[in-house]
């Protein structure tokens, strides 16, 4: 959290990966989590040709004040990079003192920045071991939650229930397991 936005405490998060890695869904879950605490939130996807394959990313801003621009193109407090092109592209916009969460199953380098915190998580491999490649985003979400001890597992489960509804109910235990693997 920093004080860079129009007022109050603000966290600016950018989540990026290949299309299909669940970057946009992860962003919505982060937004819903903070919304549950009564904060203002915005979620803004990249949209356009990149949605049909290639990279996908979304900006999430949470704040106890008014949120101005909904796009995180500078001063990201948190970057969740699910693949290497995302780290390459967005590493420079992380604010000094910010955090990079990197999917080290795919990303085979650290950060070149000396002024940010780098947290690796073996997200894709953990997801595959759990039997579903698609839940790598949930593992990374667990790692994100390490930055936010105010959220407990049941907060996360409630958001998953809200987000996925009846249709996704059967998959929630698996998603919870993935999140917990990332949160340790």
């Amino acid at each position: 959290m920093n004080n860079s936005s129009s007022s109050g405490k603000t966290e600016r998060i950018l989540i990026a990966g290949f299309g299909g890695q669940g970057a946009l869904t992860a962003g919505q879950i982060i937004a819903l989590l903070h919304m549950g605490r009564g904060l203002n939130v915005t979620w803004m996807p990249s949209y356009g040709a990149e949605m049909r394959g290639g990279t996908a990313n979304c900006s999430v801003i949470v704040s106890d004040g008014i949120i101005g621009s909904p796009t995180v193109s500078t001063n990201a407090d948190v970057l969740i990079a699910l693949n290497t092109p995302s780290l390459d592209k967005f590493e420079p916009i992380v604010a000094p003192g910010g955090t990079i969460i990197a999917n080290t199953s795919i990303i085979k380098r650290g950060t070149t920045r000396t002024d940010v915190k780098f947290i690796g998580v073996d997200a894709t491999n953990i997801a595959v071991a759990l039997g579903n490649l698609k839940i790598a985003n949930m593992v990374a979400m667990g790692t994100y939650l390490n930055l936010h001890p105010e959220f407990n597992d049941s907060d996360f489960e409630k958001v998953l229930n809200d987000r996925f509804g009846e249709k996704g109910k059967a998959l929630i235990p698996l998603n919870m397991e993935a999140m917990k693997k990332g949160r340790v």
């Binding site: 939130v41 915005t42 803004m44 996807p45 909904p70």
Partner: peptide, 10 residues
Amino acid sequence: DGTLGQMMEP
């Protein structure tokens, strides 16, 4: 604009 159409808020 397209941004507001695509963005999410409570």
